[in-house]
């Protein structure tokens, strides 16, 4: 099995999950750097080249709201979920659980 193929498929698998993880983490207000650290601690490393454009897209889609504020003598952009974002997160989380349940059944059958 080629390592690069595994890496490609793994990235594909992670992509949607990362969006969900970001939404989950932004139920409390955070700025980019601390968000990345929080994800990393939870075991979901995400490089900033992916994270910041993703935040921007989610904001453009009305799921996130942002605000520039000063903290530690530097201006930082704080993000948090909008009410739309909360609803979307609930839907997506439920969907992920459904997918997980199906997958577990399918994988269990494959192993049987």
């Amino acid at each position: 099995m080629s390592d690069s193929l595994f890496e490609n498929l793994r990235l594909e698998l992670r992509r949607g999950c990362l969006t969900l993880a970001v939404l989950a983490n932004l139920r409390t207000e955070r700025y980019g750097y601390t968000l990345r650290k929080a994800l990393e601690e939870a075991g979901l490393e995400m490089d900033e080249g992916t994270l910041y454009p993703l935040l921007r897209r989610l904001e453009g889609q009305g799921l996130l709201a942002s605000e520039w504020r000063e903290e530690n003598k530097r201006r930082k952009r704080f993000y948090r979920l909008t009410p739309d974002g909360e609803r979307m997160f609930d839907h997506l989380a439920a969907e992920l659980q459904r997918i997980n349940a199906s997958l577990e059944r399918i994988i269990a059958e494959a192993h049987a």
Binding site: Y31, G32, R36, E48, Y52, R56, W68, R75, R77
Partner: peptide, 9 residues
């Protein structure tokens, strides 16, 4: 906007 955010990071 974008560069300020990257700068902070």
């Amino acid at each position: 906007d974008v560069t300020a955010e990257i700068a902070d990071d």
